[in-house]
Simulated assay, not measured.
Amino acid sequence: MAELLSTAPEDIERAARALKEGKLVAFPTETVYGLGADATNTTALARVFEAKRRPTFDPLIVHIARSEELPSVADLSQLSAERRTLVTRLIEQFWPGPLTLILPKQPHVPDLATSALPTVAVRLPAHPVAQDLIRRTGLPVAAPSANPFGYLSPTRAEHVKEQLGNKVDFIIDGGRSDVGVESTVLDLSSEEVTILRPGGLARERIESLIGPVHQIDRTTKHPTAPGQLPSHYAPRAALSLYPAGGIPLQFPAQGERTACLFFSDASRAQWLASFQSANPGMEAPLCQVLSHSGSLIEAAANLFDLLHQLDALAVDRILAERVPDRDLGPAINDRLYKARGEAKGNH
Protein backbone atom coordinates (compact mmCIF):
# COMPACT_ATOMS: atom_id res chain seq x y z
CA MET A 1 0.00 0.00 0.00
CA ALA A 2 1.23 3.51 -0.85
CA GLU A 3 2.77 5.55 1.94
CA LEU A 4 0.98 8.83 2.59
CA LEU A 5 3.24 11.90 2.77
CA SER A 6 2.57 15.43 3.97
CA THR A 7 3.48 18.66 2.19
CA ALA A 8 6.37 19.32 4.61
CA PRO A 9 9.67 20.04 2.79
CA GLU A 10 11.28 16.84 4.06
CA ASP A 11 8.40 14.74 2.69
CA ILE A 12 8.51 16.49 -0.68
CA GLU A 13 12.27 15.89 -0.80
CA ARG A 14 11.66 12.22 -0.04
CA ALA A 15 9.12 12.04 -2.87
CA ALA A 16 11.57 13.73 -5.25
CA ARG A 17 14.23 11.14 -4.44
CA ALA A 18 11.70 8.40 -5.09
CA LEU A 19 10.91 9.82 -8.53
CA LYS A 20 14.61 9.93 -9.39
CA GLU A 21 14.80 6.25 -8.37
CA GLY A 22 12.08 5.33 -10.86
CA LYS A 23 9.24 5.08 -8.34
CA LEU A 24 5.69 6.40 -8.73
CA VAL A 25 4.49 9.36 -6.68
CA ALA A 26 0.93 10.71 -6.73
CA PHE A 27 0.84 14.43 -6.03
CA PRO A 28 -1.65 17.30 -6.01
CA THR A 29 -2.02 19.80 -8.81
CA GLU A 30 -4.58 22.58 -9.10
CA THR A 31 -6.55 20.48 -11.62
CA VAL A 32 -6.55 16.89 -10.27
CA TYR A 33 -4.02 14.59 -8.59
CA GLY A 34 -1.30 13.35 -10.94
CA LEU A 35 0.52 10.01 -11.02
CA GLY A 36 4.11 11.14 -11.34
CA ALA A 37 7.07 9.35 -12.92
CA ASP A 38 10.43 10.43 -14.31
CA ALA A 39 9.54 11.35 -17.91
CA THR A 40 13.01 10.32 -19.10
CA ASN A 41 12.86 6.83 -17.54
CA THR A 42 11.08 4.33 -19.79
CA THR A 43 10.82 1.73 -17.01
CA ALA A 44 9.09 4.26 -14.73
CA LEU A 45 6.79 5.28 -17.60
CA ALA A 46 5.90 1.65 -18.19
CA ARG A 47 4.93 1.37 -14.52
CA VAL A 48 2.51 4.30 -15.02
CA PHE A 49 0.76 2.53 -17.89
CA GLU A 50 0.66 -0.70 -15.89
CA ALA A 51 -0.67 0.97 -12.72
CA LYS A 52 -3.41 2.82 -14.60
CA ARG A 53 -4.14 -0.02 -17.04
CA ARG A 54 -3.77 2.74 -19.61
CA PRO A 55 -3.37 1.91 -23.32
CA THR A 56 0.01 2.98 -24.65
CA PHE A 57 -1.61 4.81 -27.58
CA ASP A 58 -2.85 7.45 -25.11
CA PRO A 59 -0.04 10.03 -24.61
CA LEU A 60 1.01 11.44 -21.25
CA ILE A 61 1.45 15.06 -20.15
CA VAL A 62 4.97 16.08 -19.19
CA HIS A 63 5.16 18.55 -16.29
CA ILE A 64 7.92 21.09 -15.77
CA ALA A 65 8.67 23.42 -12.84
CA ARG A 66 9.70 26.59 -14.75
CA SER A 67 8.80 27.93 -18.19
CA GLU A 68 12.51 28.20 -18.95
CA GLU A 69 12.61 24.38 -18.97
CA LEU A 70 10.24 24.12 -21.95
CA PRO A 71 13.03 23.83 -24.59
CA SER A 72 14.37 20.78 -22.75
CA VAL A 73 11.32 18.77 -23.84
CA ALA A 74 9.85 20.75 -26.77
CA ASP A 75 11.74 21.60 -29.97
CA LEU A 76 10.47 25.13 -30.61
CA SER A 77 12.82 25.51 -33.59
CA GLN A 78 10.36 23.43 -35.62
CA LEU A 79 7.75 26.18 -35.23
CA SER A 80 7.46 29.32 -37.33
CA ALA A 81 8.54 32.61 -35.78
CA GLU A 82 4.88 33.64 -35.59
CA ARG A 83 3.92 30.43 -33.78
CA ARG A 84 6.84 30.77 -31.35
CA THR A 85 5.56 34.26 -30.50
CA LEU A 86 2.15 32.73 -29.87
CA VAL A 87 3.68 30.16 -27.51
CA THR A 88 5.44 32.93 -25.60
CA ARG A 89 2.21 34.94 -25.23
CA LEU A 90 0.28 31.92 -23.97
CA ILE A 91 2.99 31.00 -21.47
CA GLU A 92 3.30 34.55 -20.15
CA GLN A 93 -0.46 34.81 -19.67
CA PHE A 94 -1.52 31.32 -18.57
CA TRP A 95 1.50 29.53 -17.05
CA PRO A 96 1.62 28.30 -14.41
CA GLY A 97 -1.93 27.06 -14.73
CA PRO A 98 -4.38 24.55 -16.24
CA LEU A 99 -3.14 24.80 -19.83
CA THR A 100 -1.28 21.99 -21.63
CA LEU A 101 0.50 22.82 -24.89
CA ILE A 102 1.09 20.29 -27.69
CA LEU A 103 4.43 21.11 -29.33
CA PRO A 104 7.09 19.35 -31.45
CA LYS A 105 9.12 17.15 -29.11
CA GLN A 106 12.84 16.93 -28.52
CA PRO A 107 14.32 13.67 -29.89
CA HIS A 108 15.35 12.43 -26.43
CA VAL A 109 11.80 12.47 -25.04
CA PRO A 110 10.83 8.76 -24.87
CA ASP A 111 8.25 7.55 -27.38
CA LEU A 112 6.44 5.86 -24.49
CA ALA A 113 5.61 9.31 -23.06
CA THR A 114 4.25 10.57 -26.37
CA SER A 115 2.72 7.39 -27.82
CA ALA A 116 5.41 7.61 -30.55
CA LEU A 117 3.93 10.88 -31.80
CA PRO A 118 6.29 13.63 -33.02
CA THR A 119 4.77 15.95 -30.42
CA VAL A 120 4.83 16.26 -26.64
CA ALA A 121 2.17 17.55 -24.24
CA VAL A 122 3.70 19.98 -21.72
CA ARG A 123 2.30 21.79 -18.69
CA LEU A 124 3.59 23.98 -15.87
CA PRO A 125 1.21 23.36 -12.93
CA ALA A 126 0.23 26.19 -10.58
CA HIS A 127 0.07 24.10 -7.40
CA PRO A 128 3.04 25.00 -5.15
CA VAL A 129 3.53 21.38 -4.03
CA ALA A 130 3.68 20.17 -7.63
CA GLN A 131 6.16 22.89 -8.53
CA ASP A 132 8.34 22.17 -5.52
CA LEU A 133 8.34 18.43 -6.18
CA ILE A 134 9.29 18.79 -9.85
CA ARG A 135 11.94 21.40 -9.05
CA ARG A 136 13.53 19.14 -6.39
CA THR A 137 13.44 16.22 -8.81
CA GLY A 138 15.36 18.20 -11.43
CA LEU A 139 13.60 16.23 -14.15
CA PRO A 140 10.49 16.56 -16.31
CA VAL A 141 7.72 14.55 -14.66
CA ALA A 142 5.09 12.66 -16.64
CA ALA A 143 1.86 12.77 -14.67
CA PRO A 144 -1.50 11.58 -15.98
CA SER A 145 -4.41 11.64 -13.54
CA ALA A 146 -3.82 9.24 -10.63
CA ASN A 147 -6.69 6.84 -11.29
CA PRO A 148 -7.31 3.64 -13.25
CA PHE A 149 -7.77 4.41 -16.95
CA GLY A 150 -11.32 5.46 -17.79
CA TYR A 151 -12.40 5.98 -14.18
CA LEU A 152 -13.11 9.13 -12.18
CA SER A 153 -10.18 11.50 -11.80
CA PRO A 154 -9.02 12.06 -8.21
CA THR A 155 -9.33 15.43 -6.55
CA ARG A 156 -8.23 14.24 -3.08
CA ALA A 157 -5.44 12.00 -1.79
CA GLU A 158 -8.01 9.51 -0.47
CA HIS A 159 -9.39 9.07 -4.01
CA VAL A 160 -5.91 8.01 -5.14
CA LYS A 161 -5.51 5.65 -2.19
CA GLU A 162 -8.88 4.00 -2.89
CA GLN A 163 -8.21 3.49 -6.60
CA LEU A 164 -4.43 2.98 -6.88
CA GLY A 165 -3.26 2.43 -3.30
CA ASN A 166 -1.27 -0.76 -3.94
CA LYS A 167 0.21 0.41 -7.26
CA VAL A 168 1.80 3.69 -6.12
CA ASP A 169 4.86 4.12 -3.91
CA PHE A 170 3.92 7.45 -2.31
CA ILE A 171 0.93 9.82 -2.21
CA ILE A 172 1.44 13.45 -1.20
CA ASP A 173 -1.70 14.72 0.53
CA GLY A 174 -2.13 18.34 -0.49
CA GLY A 175 -5.86 18.66 0.18
CA ARG A 176 -8.54 19.02 -2.48
CA SER A 177 -7.65 20.21 -5.97
CA ASP A 178 -9.02 23.71 -6.55
CA VAL A 179 -9.95 23.55 -10.26
CA GLY A 180 -11.32 20.01 -10.18
CA VAL A 181 -11.13 19.19 -13.92
CA GLU A 182 -8.09 18.42 -16.03
CA SER A 183 -6.15 21.01 -17.98
CA THR A 184 -7.22 22.42 -21.32
CA VAL A 185 -5.08 20.87 -24.08
CA LEU A 186 -4.12 23.26 -26.91
CA ASP A 187 -2.35 21.97 -30.03
CA LEU A 188 0.18 24.44 -31.42
CA SER A 189 2.07 21.90 -33.54
CA SER A 190 -0.20 21.88 -36.59
CA GLU A 191 -1.40 24.50 -39.03
CA GLU A 192 -4.58 25.30 -37.11
CA VAL A 193 -4.47 26.10 -33.38
CA THR A 194 -6.86 23.56 -31.86
CA ILE A 195 -8.31 22.72 -28.45
CA LEU A 196 -7.96 18.93 -28.22
CA ARG A 197 -9.55 18.73 -24.76
CA PRO A 198 -11.61 21.40 -22.99
CA GLY A 199 -10.51 21.85 -19.40
CA GLY A 200 -9.69 24.19 -16.56
CA LEU A 201 -8.84 27.16 -18.80
CA ALA A 202 -11.92 28.45 -20.63
CA ARG A 203 -11.84 28.74 -24.43
CA GLU A 204 -13.03 32.33 -24.12
CA ARG A 205 -9.89 33.29 -22.19
CA ILE A 206 -7.61 31.73 -24.80
CA GLU A 207 -9.46 33.40 -27.66
CA SER A 208 -9.36 36.78 -25.91
CA LEU A 209 -5.57 36.54 -26.11
CA ILE A 210 -4.87 34.90 -29.48
CA GLY A 211 -8.14 35.05 -31.42
CA PRO A 212 -10.43 32.21 -32.61
CA VAL A 213 -9.26 28.62 -32.12
CA HIS A 214 -10.63 25.37 -33.51
CA GLN A 215 -12.12 22.68 -31.25
CA ILE A 216 -11.72 19.02 -32.18
CA ASP A 217 -14.64 16.57 -32.19
CA ARG A 218 -14.66 14.90 -28.76
CA THR A 219 -15.61 11.49 -30.19
CA THR A 220 -12.19 10.83 -31.74
CA LYS A 221 -10.99 7.21 -31.58
CA HIS A 222 -7.36 8.18 -32.29
CA PRO A 223 -6.13 10.39 -29.43
CA THR A 224 -3.29 12.85 -29.94
CA ALA A 225 -3.69 14.12 -26.39
CA PRO A 226 -4.95 12.71 -23.07
CA GLY A 227 -8.70 12.58 -22.40
CA GLN A 228 -9.86 12.44 -26.02
CA LEU A 229 -11.43 8.98 -26.03
CA PRO A 230 -15.26 9.02 -26.19
CA SER A 231 -15.65 6.97 -22.98
CA HIS A 232 -13.67 8.21 -20.00
CA TYR A 233 -13.94 9.67 -16.46
CA ALA A 234 -16.60 7.07 -15.61
CA PRO A 235 -18.13 6.36 -12.18
CA ARG A 236 -19.14 2.81 -11.29
CA ALA A 237 -22.82 3.75 -11.58
CA ALA A 238 -24.40 4.06 -15.01
CA LEU A 239 -24.70 7.75 -15.88
CA SER A 240 -27.33 9.27 -18.16
CA LEU A 241 -26.93 12.85 -19.39
CA TYR A 242 -29.84 15.17 -20.17
CA PRO A 243 -30.29 18.76 -21.34
CA ALA A 244 -30.72 21.39 -18.62
CA GLY A 245 -34.15 20.84 -17.04
CA GLY A 246 -34.56 17.55 -18.93
CA ILE A 247 -34.09 14.94 -16.19
CA PRO A 248 -37.21 12.70 -16.39
CA LEU A 249 -39.88 12.73 -13.70
CA GLN A 250 -40.49 8.97 -13.83
CA PHE A 251 -37.89 6.21 -13.55
CA PRO A 252 -38.85 3.02 -15.43
CA ALA A 253 -36.36 0.70 -13.70
CA GLN A 254 -37.63 -0.81 -10.46
CA GLY A 255 -35.29 -1.56 -7.58
CA GLU A 256 -32.51 0.72 -8.82
CA ARG A 257 -31.05 3.27 -6.46
CA THR A 258 -31.09 6.47 -8.49
CA ALA A 259 -29.41 9.81 -7.84
CA CYS A 260 -29.91 13.08 -9.69
CA LEU A 261 -27.11 15.57 -10.32
CA PHE A 262 -28.16 19.19 -10.89
CA PHE A 263 -26.18 22.27 -11.82
CA SER A 264 -27.65 24.62 -9.19
CA ASP A 265 -30.10 24.91 -6.30
CA ALA A 266 -32.50 26.65 -8.69
CA SER A 267 -32.53 23.78 -11.20
CA ARG A 268 -32.93 21.21 -8.39
CA ALA A 269 -35.84 23.13 -6.81
CA GLN A 270 -37.61 23.46 -10.17
CA TRP A 271 -37.26 19.74 -10.88
CA LEU A 272 -38.35 18.69 -7.36
CA ALA A 273 -41.52 20.80 -7.66
CA SER A 274 -42.36 19.10 -10.97
CA PHE A 275 -41.51 15.65 -9.57
CA GLN A 276 -43.74 16.07 -6.52
CA SER A 277 -46.58 17.32 -8.71
CA ALA A 278 -46.24 14.36 -11.10
CA ASN A 279 -45.68 11.78 -8.32
CA PRO A 280 -47.75 12.78 -5.29
CA GLY A 281 -46.66 10.98 -2.14
CA MET A 282 -43.59 9.40 -3.78
CA GLU A 283 -40.21 9.92 -2.14
CA ALA A 284 -37.83 11.88 -4.33
CA PRO A 285 -34.46 10.33 -5.24
CA LEU A 286 -31.16 11.53 -3.81
CA CYS A 287 -30.42 14.94 -5.33
CA GLN A 288 -26.94 16.50 -5.49
CA VAL A 289 -25.97 19.96 -6.71
CA LEU A 290 -22.71 20.95 -8.41
CA SER A 291 -22.95 24.59 -7.34
CA HIS A 292 -25.53 26.03 -4.96
CA SER A 293 -25.09 29.50 -6.45
CA GLY A 294 -24.84 28.43 -10.09
CA SER A 295 -21.10 29.13 -10.38
CA LEU A 296 -19.35 27.16 -13.13
CA ILE A 297 -16.03 27.51 -11.30
CA GLU A 298 -17.55 25.91 -8.19
CA ALA A 299 -19.30 23.27 -10.33
CA ALA A 300 -16.00 22.23 -11.95
CA ALA A 301 -14.28 22.01 -8.57
CA ASN A 302 -17.10 19.83 -7.19
CA LEU A 303 -17.73 17.54 -10.20
CA PHE A 304 -15.39 14.60 -9.54
CA ASP A 305 -15.75 14.98 -5.77
CA LEU A 306 -19.53 14.51 -5.99
CA LEU A 307 -19.23 11.60 -8.42
CA HIS A 308 -16.81 9.91 -6.02
CA GLN A 309 -19.36 10.47 -3.20
CA LEU A 310 -22.14 8.90 -5.27
CA ASP A 311 -19.88 5.93 -6.01
CA ALA A 312 -19.26 5.55 -2.27
CA LEU A 313 -23.04 5.50 -1.71
CA ALA A 314 -23.28 2.65 -4.25
CA VAL A 315 -26.05 4.21 -6.34
CA ASP A 316 -27.00 2.22 -9.45
CA ARG A 317 -27.75 5.11 -11.78
CA ILE A 318 -26.95 8.81 -11.96
CA LEU A 319 -29.20 11.16 -13.92
CA ALA A 320 -27.23 14.33 -14.66
CA GLU A 321 -28.14 17.55 -16.40
CA ARG A 322 -25.84 19.53 -18.64
CA VAL A 323 -24.50 22.82 -17.33
CA PRO A 324 -24.47 26.09 -19.31
CA ASP A 325 -22.09 25.78 -22.26
CA ARG A 326 -19.86 28.77 -21.46
CA ASP A 327 -16.61 29.42 -19.56
CA LEU A 328 -15.78 26.11 -17.78
CA GLY A 329 -19.14 24.64 -18.83
CA PRO A 330 -17.75 22.86 -21.93
CA ALA A 331 -15.12 21.11 -19.76
CA ILE A 332 -17.79 19.95 -17.27
CA ASN A 333 -20.14 18.80 -20.04
CA ASP A 334 -17.26 17.01 -21.76
CA ARG A 335 -16.53 15.01 -18.58
CA LEU A 336 -20.22 14.19 -18.10
CA TYR A 337 -20.57 13.17 -21.74
CA LYS A 338 -17.60 10.82 -21.53
CA ALA A 339 -18.69 9.48 -18.13
CA ARG A 340 -21.80 8.04 -19.78
CA GLY A 341 -19.79 5.27 -21.47
CA GLU A 342 -21.01 4.44 -24.96
CA ALA A 343 -21.28 0.74 -24.08
CA LYS A 344 -23.90 1.52 -21.49
CA GLY A 345 -26.35 2.81 -24.08
CA ASN A 346 -27.19 5.91 -22.07
CA HIS A 347 -28.82 9.05 -23.35
Rank of each mutant, 00 (worst) to 15 (best):
Q250N: 12
C260T: 09
V122I: 10
G175L: 06
I171M: 07
G180Y: 02
R176I: 14
S295H: 09
T258S: 12
V120R: 08
G281T: 08
V109W: 01
T184R: 00
G329A: 07
A234W: 07
I297C: 03
T119P: 07
L306F: 08
P59S: 04
T85W: 01
S291E: 05
K20L: 15
E68H: 02
E321L: 08
G180H: 03
S153G: 06
H108L: 09
V323R: 09
H159N: 07
T114H: 06
Q106D: 05
R156C: 09
I172F: 06
I172H: 05
Y242L: 08
E50Y: 13
A299H: 02
L60E: 04
P110T: 06
D327C: 05
H347S: 14
L241I: 08
I171T: 07
S277Y: 11
P96K: 00
E92D: 11
K105H: 06
D265N: 12
Q288I: 12
A331C: 10
R236D: 11
T40Y: 12
P59W: 03
E92G: 02
D311Y: 02
R203P: 05
G345L: 08
Q131D: 01
L103S: 00
E207D: 10
A266F: 12
K344L: 10
E92W: 00
D169N: 11
P118V: 03
A37R: 04
S190A: 15
A2D: 04
G341K: 13
S240P: 05
H292M: 12
W95N: 00
V32C: 05
E3H: 15
R218E: 14
R84L: 04
A300V: 03
T88K: 07
R89D: 08
I102Y: 05
G150I: 02
R14Y: 06
A300Y: 02
R17M: 13
L76K: 00
I297H: 10
I172S: 04
H159S: 03
I12L: 13
D38L: 06
T119R: 04
A278P: 08
P144M: 02
G175K: 03
Q106W: 03
E321H: 07
L336I: 09
L45N: 10
S190V: 13
T220R: 11
A143W: 01
C287E: 07
L296W: 11
I64N: 03
R83G: 01
A300S: 12
I210E: 01
P96T: 00
E92F: 00
L103W: 00
T137R: 02
L229Y: 11
L101K: 00
V213E: 01
R322Q: 09
M282N: 09
K167Q: 13
A113P: 08
L290C: 04
